[in-house]
């Protein structure tokens, strides 16, 4: 088993917190900015490697046999990014001719292993790199969860350490030939998002699937994520609205738990001119299947939620030009 402490590249320790206008210890101007004069970290920053990242060609080489690379994004937490990534994996891997990979970029709160039912697995190292954890013959996954000494160990890392691990995931994991690499991301628009875009730009990202829930508090953060995608040059394959509408199991009456007071995901898509891929109703059994690490699509193939999910998956495959 690989311990987290052993997998990181030689890390640097700053003597004190970065000053306010710090150019960033890893930027090209590190150690030369106005804020650097007199900063106790100046020498450390100056000694860090500069210039074009020599690892990027290695990443591109390692990912060269992957046909489609899709990011699952949302500005907001808890809207179902990991659930949807899991569903995408189950749906795509049900076709035995497809090879699927799933990568969990959420370092502080990894959910993918639990949802795919492989939370207690560990990563093995071989001469070709780290071997991902196989959930099925054609479904490979990678997450920091596989490297934690305890299930509930906290990863208290600042951005630079997270970036280093993300790079390892892309460069040193033996992904082999894949039809799809699905990347599950944490909420927000920060280090993980900037890094994945920077590291994968050269190998080409097909685009992003944006997940939201119907209420404005979620849409507000999703707008920010879409703004980020546009600034970063990531194509938006489409938006899916999750947890939209709830059908009471006893009286079959429908209620809007997360009210789309501003029109929900569909309206946002119109407003920002991005493809709307569909709405998935809230079904308590989805959460249950995910907690148990079972495929909801196999357990309840006829449910409205399953049908809606499969429909979104079809549209997504269409959007990347697979079908």
């Amino acid at each position: 088993m690989t311990e987290v402490s052993q997998i990181l590249p030689p890390d640097y320790q700053l003597k004190e917190a970065e000053p306010e206008h710090c150019p960033g210890p890893e930027s090209e101007k590190a150690g030369q900015g106005d804020a650097c004069a007199g900063c106790a970290n100046k020498e450390i920053c100056e000694s860090l490697p500069k210039g074009p990242d020599p690892d990027i060609p290695l990443i591109t080489e390692n990912l060269s046999q992957i046909k489609h690379k899709v990011l699952v994004l949302s500005g907001k937490g808890g809207v179902g990014k990991s659930t949807f990534t899991t569903m995408l994996c189950w749906a795509l891997s049900s076709d035995e001719d497809l090879q699927i990979g799933a990568m969990d970029l959420d370092i502080c709160g990894p959910s993918l292993p639990r949802m795919l039912g492989c939370v207690n697995e560990t990563v093995h190292e071989s001469n070709t790199g780290w071997t991902p954890v196989y959930v099925a013959d054609n479904l490979a996954t990678m997450s920091i969860q596989y490297m934690l000494p305890e299930d509930d160990s906290a990863i208290i890392w600042r951005g630079s350490k997270k970036n280093a691990l993300i790079k390892k995931f892309l460069k040193d994991v033996d992904w082999d030939a894949l039809d799809y690499l699905i990347v599950d991301t944490p909420p927000g628009t920060s280090d993980e998002h900037i890094s994945i875009n920077k590291f994968m730009k050269e190998s080409g990202i097909d685009g992003a699937l944006v997940v939201t829930t119907p209420q404005e508090v979620a849409l507000l953060d999703v707008r920010k994520e879409i703004d980020f995608c546009r600034k970063a040059g990531i194509k938006i394959l489409g938006l899916v609205e999750n947890m939209s509408g709830f059908v009471c199991p006893s009286c079959k009456g429908e209620s809007q738990i997360f009210k789309p007071t501003t029109g929900g995901g569909e309206k946002l898509c119109e407003e920002l001119n991005i493809p709307f891929l569909g709405s998935v109703p809230l079904d308590p059994r989805v959460g249950k299947s995910c907690d148990e690490g079972q495929s909801f699509l196999d357990q309840h193939p006829e449910s409205p939620a399953s049908l809606a999910i499969l429909d979104v998956v079809e549209k997504l495959r269409d959007a990347v030009g697979d079908i």
Partner: peptide
């Protein structure tokens, strides 16, 4: 309200300070 704040760690640290 739709603007994203795309910040790495050091900027977030400075803001919280």
């Amino acid at each position: 309200r739709g603007n994203s704040v795309v910040w790495r760690g050091p900027k977030k640290t400075a803001m919280i300070k």
